[in-house]
């Protein structure tokens, strides 16, 4: 992507009813950034990601992705990969792991086209990458939560997006799976793909070196390289009233 910024927020305000969720967000995330978004529960991390994915609209201001408003038709051509917070899916939907990952190709294929040899090859490569090839034929409902999460990451990868959004990707997963997810983030970073990862779990910072950190609590508390942002002061402001692991406060600085 030649665009200098992957995501730009301009005086962005988001409400749910009368409830202010995001207040005056001004932010420009350079292309290729591996961003960690931290903040307590209810700080608007998910809403921020959903706004970028085009799922919710602001009351004022705008968000641009690679210089464009991410309208539906734009997203159809320029995919944004989104891995939502793990939620219980329809366990009985008759669809295999392979088919779920292939759904990620839907936008790239466009209407009236069915998957070609390249698409099948790509889906297979991605399944190898997330270590799910042996389970490709399994119905998705028969997998564990962590395995399902890996399938949804694979589906996002199948979009071949230059921007990937991860909402709490490690939550509820065992340590090896979390490590493999953060290893994947590193690989994506090396490929020049912009990733935005939301987490309320500061331990995630132990696993992974984000090159930028965004501290969010309805408005932006701080945005910058970890060594500047992960200070006791800023963390206290971000998590005001929320205890955080003291060990980390020295760690980031």
């Amino acid at each position: 992507m030649s665009e200098p910024f992957a995501v730009e927020f301009d005086r962005f305000n988001l409400n749910y009813g009368d409830h202010e969720v995001l207040k005056n967000i001004n932010l420009a995330i350079p292309s290729g950034t591996c961003l960690g978004i931290i903040g307590p529960n209810g700080s608007g991390k998910t809403s921020l990601l959903r706004s970028i994915a085009g799922l919710i609209q602001p009351v004022s201001g705008e968000v641009k992705v690679f210089g464009h408003v991410p309208s539906r038709s734009w997203r159809h051509r320029q995919p944004i990969g989104y891995v939502p917070q793990w939620k219980s899916i329809d366990q009985e939907f008759p669809i295999s792991v392979y088919e779920v990952v292939m759904l990620g190709r839907t936008g790239r294929l466009g209407f009236f086209h069915s998957p070609k040899t390249e698409d099948h090859a790509l889906v297979e490569r991605i399944l190898v990458r997330v270590n799910m090839l042996e389970l490709a034929a399994r119905p998705i409902g028969q997998l564990s939560g962590g395995q399902q999460q890996r399938v949804f990451i694979a589906r996002a990868l199948a979009q071949e997006a230059n921007l990937l959004l991860f909402d709490e990707p490690g939550t509820g997963l065992d340590i090896p799976t979390q490590e493999s997810i953060y290893r994947l983030l590193e690989e994506l970073h090396e490929d020049g793909i912009t990733t935005l990862t939301a987490t309320h779990d500061l331990m995630a910072l132990e696993f992974h070196h984000f090159d930028r950190i965004l501290c969010l609590n309805k408005h932006i508390i701080a945005f910058g390289p970890p060594e500047e942002v992960l200070t006791p002061d800023i963390l206290a402001k971000t998590f005001s009233g929320v205890p955080w692991p003291t060990k980390l406060v020295g760690h980031g600085a």
Binding site: G54, R72, H76, R77, L103, G104, T106, G107
Partner: peptide
């Protein structure tokens, strides 16, 4: 493929740009 996507996961279908 669009109807299957919509039936399985309407929200992600929207992210991918399906109407």
């Amino acid at each position: 493929k669009e109807f299957v996507f919509y039936a399985f996961d309407p929200e992600m279908a929207e992210v991918v740009g399906l109407p």
